[in-house]
Computed example of a mutant assay.
Amino acid sequence: MNITARNRMRLLVPAALAALAVGGTTAAASVPSATPAAHSVTAQHHRGTVKQTEAMLDAWLRLWNGDYTQAPGIISPRFTVHAALLDGGDGSGIRGADGLVAWISQTRAAFPDLRFSLQIDPLAAGDRASVRWTATGTYAGGFPGAKAQPGTTVTFTGTDTLRMKNGRFVEYWLNSDTLQLLTQLQAL
């Protein structure tokens, strides 16, 4: 899925920056009026940031769909995860591109055809972006405590919130519906 082609970013821009970018003064009456050249520079920077964020989110989705070659280009060596993991961990042990790829590979081992798709357009504000997704896949077996038969189709949802720095993701907050997944796997 190409985020750029199918989904347009909705940028949540502070009122003052929005007023400068469009030349208005409604929400930012105390902000000095910018010159037309400044408007052009601000608008160009804004468009460049949007395109970069869209490209990074597109690569993020491809990474979770099994294209591990995306990781080095979008994941910072200082990348950290914040998540309530099924093994009881908090995600703090998952570091950098290699750690993320190992975690994704482990997840995909139980669901080899797991496919992530976006439910709604991504949201971005400053150095953060958030995507709401649905994952669907076929259970291959081996999930601890699962009584579902291999071949069972599962679908679950979640939201990824990511912080970007210098063109790479540096921090990741995951909120997924593990209850929905565990119920389908008959693991409760």
Results as ranks from 00 to 15, higher is better:
Ala29His: 13
Gln119Asp: 15
Phe111Gly: 09
Arg128Val: 08
Ser117Val: 13
Trp60Val: 02
Ile74Gly: 04
Arg95His: 14
Leu57Pro: 04
Gly24Trp: 13
Gly24Arg: 07
Arg78Lys: 07
Thr53Asn: 12
Gln70Arg: 07
Ala59Met: 01
Met56Trp: 01
Gly158Lys: 08
Ala148Arg: 04
Gly89Ala: 04
Ala29Glu: 13
Arg115Phe: 10
Arg132Asn: 05
Leu123Asp: 11
Gly99Leu: 00
Gln52Phe: 05
Pro32Met: 10
Gln44Lys: 12
Ala148Ile: 05
Ala140Glu: 06
Thr152Ala: 11
Trp133Lys: 00
Gly99Asp: 00
Ala124Arg: 07
Ala28Cys: 04
Asn65Met: 02
Gly141Trp: 03
Arg95Gly: 04
Arg115Leu: 14
Thr155Gly: 08
Val41His: 11
Leu86Ile: 12
Trp133Gly: 05
Gly48Lys: 09
Thr138Val: 02
Ala97Asn: 04
Thr138Ile: 05
Gly48Ser: 11
Ser117Ala: 08
Gln52Cys: 05
Arg108Asp: 07
Thr157Gly: 10
Arg115Cys: 10
Ile120Ser: 15
Gly151Phe: 08
His82Ala: 06
Ala83Glu: 15
Ala55Met: 11
Leu86Gln: 14
Pro150Asp: 03
Asp87His: 04
Phe116Gln: 03
Ala148Asp: 01
Ala135Cys: 08
Lys147Tyr: 14
Phe156Ser: 09
Thr69Glu: 15
Ala110Asp: 09
Thr153Asn: 07
Ala129Lys: 07
Gly158Tyr: 07
Pro77Leu: 05
Leu86Phe: 09
Arg108Gly: 12
His45Leu: 10
Trp64Ser: 01
Gly99Ser: 03
Gly151Leu: 05
Gly145Gln: 02
Leu86Trp: 10
Thr25Phe: 09
Leu100Thr: 00
Ala28Phe: 06
Met56Asn: 13
Asp121Pro: 13
Phe143Tyr: 13
Gly66Thr: 02
Asp160Ala: 00
Gly91Val: 00
Gly158Thr: 10
Gln119Ile: 13
Gly89Ile: 00
Gly88Glu: 02
Leu61Gln: 12
Ala97Ser: 08
Thr157Glu: 15
Trp103Glu: 11
Ala140Asp: 00
Thr25Ile: 09
Thr25His: 15
Tyr139Ile: 01
Gly66Trp: 06
Phe156Gly: 11
Thr155Trp: 10
